[in-house]
Design a protein around this nucleic acid. Structure first.
Length: 622
RNA sequence: GCGGGUGUAGCUCAGCUGGUUAGAGUGCCGCCCUGUCACGGCGGAGGUCGCGAGUUCGAACCUCGUCACUCGCGCCA
């Protein structure tokens, strides 16, 4: 049918019988060298400028924009005057040079214009719910509902193209390094750890369910056991958890696994790819050269209050617990009480803040801590020249400090008059969490965060276990498949909770500008170590057998040492595109409620469908 | 599940301490306009102030509830 249409159209083009039905050139193609040619271009009416006696049409396609011009003596003038923007037309006409005064340097095709001779309207547009031209801010709800219009807009169109180019680059680069792209199932088994699974009911097995993969974790490990050595995949992942600006229900990972490797081997395989992709697509922006800094987890928490530190921010936290322990020397009882209860006081230096910011800045930080972080509060002190020389502060936290102790504190933190300090006090994890968040906010407010740079680091030596406050027991802190550092020996020696919590894993994250791009690990490929590792977390061998039987069995017949990583592609593109929202780098994203507003998902199922699946709905109370 | 923000014309937003007929820009419609590229000029249409209660002589504005979107917390190895 389509072919027939083309033939019919061609027979109508009597003046230039061999001309393509829709276009001889794209809208981004014509230059001065084409002047004098008769061309045909097709695209969307981007913008009209109607002078009454002269009408300009900017015609747009994927490749660019071309100005077309028509005069009232042309038969199509009246039609074009009425035609709405975003209508699709084919224009045939002469390429003419623009005069020096009328050329447009901002446009690739700005040296020429097309004088319209023939016009074919391929598809007239109704009044738009969302303008394409100019890209004014529009409500997301409308943008998502009319995504095809939103996607025509330059920024989003470019983001999606960037995403495609990034994925192509990653594929090429991985293949170049000896990796092969293998696929893994989408309908798979539910895995007990980690995020909530999406379930898919099985028709053939009533009351049984497939799960969509949270990641192809077990499959990629099984590939290594199967001898495939170097795997990668642009892998779709599904997690049924509440959404964030940088989290979607479905997302893509550059999933990677390698056999016979140490942690350093994984790093040196990934670093050139990550540096490469950022270097390639970030324009002039500087990118941390490989090897990226390696920061132990403990150090990251102590210096930055986060396991995904933004290294563009120069602020480092300081544990000042010791200075506040004795309130007879500080005159500040609140912190002393917290410390007596086993808590910590973490200081966040705010260079020049006392000199450059008003009291409101400090008060607002405290308000922010209470409101946004739901913390008890954020203490602060502004440092100024003391009357008798030296430095002091009239703010409550430091006002009554013994001068020598204050000097010691300031020396430790490297602060002087004109600087500010914020204090986060509480249970160790809470104190660091607030301090880490305050570090980011202070850096931003003081505008001391480096710009135009992608700063990478590895966070290494994650703890194997953590204290589960809810169940009052030791549990895995990441996934249970990681190899503990020191292997079986270390596990066997850990006879107390304290010792267990000190065990580190070959578990690592790659972080860029405060965004966690990926987690990875050297895996535990030894059934005996795995059973012991579970035992330390209070799970018997039957649990391992039941939950991970498939993998455990596979490891019994010869499994290579292996490890891998899985950088999040959406987040990489977000960083490269400068987008602060994951929806701006996904072609057809869901809203924050996990709804597809364009095609309407999720939606109720037909009773017939439910019957086939042996499902019956229950009423949900709202 | 919890907390913050937003909700006024198709859209972006203004609307003071509660007070007469709720405004601007943009888009849309009509007329004019031969060198624009955010073209310009004149005119017009367009409002359940998210929804529901309440307080008040009087509510876009105050109170309570509710809904939607969004950002965050929990959650997400």
């Amino acid at each position: 049918m389509a072919l027939k249409g083309v033939l019919v159209r061609q027979t109508f083009s009597t003046e230039t019988p061999r001309m393509h039905a829709y276009r001889t050139h794209t809208c981004g193609q014509l230059r001065s060298e084409h002047v004098g040619e008769t061309v045909r271009i097709s695209g969307w009416v981007h913008r009209k400028r109607d002078h009454g006696g002269l009408l300009f049409i900017d015609l747009r396609d994927h490749y660019g924009l071309t100005q077309c011009v028509v005069q009232p003596d042309n038969a199509h003038f009246a039609t074009l005057e009425r035609l709405r923007v975003e209508s699709v037309v084919s224009i045939t006409g002469n390429v003419v040079a623009r005069s020096e005064e009328t050329a447009n340097e901002n446009l690739d095709t700005g040296m020429i214009e097309v004088v319209i001779e023939q016009l074919e309207i391929q598809s007239a547009a109704d009044e738009l719910p969302l303008p394409v031209f100019g890209e004014p801010d529009y409500p997301e709800e409308i943008r998502l509902k009319h995504r095809y219009l939103d996607l025509r807009r330059d920024t989003l169109h470019k983001n999606i193209q960037l995403r495609a180019d990034v994925i192509t680059y990653l594929r090429e680069r991985m293949k170049g390094q000896g990796f092969t792209e293998y696929q893994s199932p989408i309908l798979t088994a539910s895995s007990p750890e980690g995020a909530r699974d999406f379930l898919v009911p099985s028709r053939m097995h009533p009351n049984n369910f497939y799960a969509l993969p949270q990641a192809p974790q077990q499959f990629k490990q099984l590939m290594m056991v199967s001898g495939f050595d170097r795997y990668f995949q642009i892998a779709p992942c599904f997690r049924d958890e509440d959404l964030r600006a940088d989290r979607s229900l479905e997302f893509y990972q550059l999933d990677i696994e390698m056999s016979f490797v140490t942690q350093e081997d994984v790093f040196s395989a990934i670093e050139p790819v990550m540096h490469g992709v950022f270097d390639e697509f970030s324009g002039e922006t500087e990118v941390t050269p490989a090897p990226f800094p390696r920061i132990p987890y403990k150090e990251a928490m102590e210096k930055y209050g986060s396991d995904k530190p933004d290294l563009r921010n120069p602020i480092e936290l300081c544990d000042v617990t010791e200075f506040f322990a004795d309130d007879s020397k500080t005159g500040f009882g609140i912190f002393a009480k917290i410390i007596a209860g086993g808590g910590k006081v973490i200081a966040v230096p705010a260079p020049k803040a006392a000199a450059e910011k008003s009291r409101k800045f400090f008060d607002d930080m405290d308000k922010w801590a209470k409101k946004e972080m739901q913390a008890p509060g954020l203490g602060y002190a502004r440092l100024k020249e003391a009357d008798g020389g030296g430095v002091d502060s009239q703010d409550p936290v430091l006002k009554n400090f013994q001068p020598e102790l204050l000097n010691e504190l300031l020396e430790k933190m490297g602060l002087e008059a004109g600087d500010g300090i914020f204090f986060s006090a509480g249970k160790k994890s809470d104190a660091y969490k607030l301090a880490g968040a305050a570090r980011l906010k202070v850096g931003e407010e003081l505008d001391i965060v480096e710009k135009d740079i992608f700063k990478f680091c590895w966070i290494v030596d994650f703890p194997m276990y953590e204290w589960d406050e809810d169940n009052k027991k030791v549990d895995f802190s990441h996934n249970p498949f990681s190899m503990p550092q020191g292997g079986l020996e270390v596990l066997e020696a850990a006879d107390t909770d304290e010792k267990k919590l000190e065990i580190l894993a070959y578990q690592y994250d790659i972080v860029c500008n405060g965004t966690e791009l990926s987690s990875g690990a050297i895996r535990n490929h030894r059934p005996d170590i795995m059973i012991k590792a579970f035992e330390l977390a209070g799970y018997g061998p039957e649990v391992v057998e039941q939950e991970f039987g498939g993998m455990l069995n596979a490891f019994k017949y010869g499994a290579p040492p292996h490890g891998g990583i899985a950088p999040g592609i959406d987040r990489i593109v977000m960083l490269l595109a400068g987008a602060d929202n994951i929806r701006d780098v996904i072609m057809f994203p869901m809203n924050q409620q996990g709804q597809d507003l364009l095609l309407g998902a999720p939606s109720p199922a037909e009773n017939a469908q439910l019957r086939e699946l042996s499902l019956r709905l229950v009423q949900v109370e709202k």
